[in-house]
């Protein structure tokens, strides 16, 4: 496997772990974003960190989006205080619709397999106009279009 294959595999596995921890039946795009932010040594990681959007900041923004969306229909997350269910560490939630779309968009952003780099995957996740990721970014006050511009700039000058 090539370096990018290993990277994609790592992101999908880490994304699945994030999904499992959340109790999600599928790995979604926001789980891939958490995974991309957790793997150091890539331009994608550097752009996110420079924007003040490291893994923990993303997790916080996603939690706010969840609460905000529930509040919109009068549901308060604080009203539910059930015990935390056990998560089976051998469970690997498969990529769901939003994750598959993010990966497809990321692949499409590259000029072929040889050009494909981690930043393309980040572009794929960020390019969704609707859904959890753009809502979480907007609630966190982050300029998604500006972030995508910075990712594209790094693609022009950084090899990984």
């Amino acid at each position: 496997m090539s370096t990018i294959d290993h990277y994609i595999n790592d992101i999908v596995l880490r994304g699945a772990a994030e999904a499992r921890e959340e109790g999600s039946a599928a790995t979604e795009a926001h789980h891939l974003l958490l995974a991309i932010a957790a793997v150091e040594g890539t331009a994608a990681h550097r752009v996110l960190t420079a924007a003040g959007f490291g893994r923990q900041a993303i997790r916080d923004a996603l939690d706010r989006e969840f609460e905000h969306s529930l509040n919109a229909v009068g549901v308060s997350l604080a009203a539910y205080d059930l015990p935390k269910p056990f998560r089976d560490p051998t469970d690997h939630p498969k990529p769901g619709a939003s994750a598959r779309l993010a990966l497809e968009r990321g692949f499409a952003a590259a000029k072929g397999k040889k050009d494909l780099r981690p930043a393309h995957l980040l572009l794929g996740v960020l390019s969704a106009d609707v859904g959890t990721v753009p809502r979480a970014l907007a609630l966190a006050g982050l300029d998604r279009a500006g972030l995508m511009d910075r990712v594209e700039e790094t693609l022009a000058r950084e090899s990984w």
């Binding site: 959340e22 109790g23 999600s24 039946a25 989006e65 969840f66 969306s69 529930l70 919109a72 229909v73 549901v75 997350l77 539910y80 059930l82 015990p83 935390k84 269910p85 959890t132 809502r135």
Partner: peptide, 16 residues
């Protein structure tokens, strides 16, 4: 988004 969040909350409550 509320629909998606409610489904997620329902899944979490169901697991617990």
């Amino acid at each position: 988004a509320a629909v998606a969040a409610l489904r997620r909350l329902a899944d979490q409550i169901e697991d617990a």
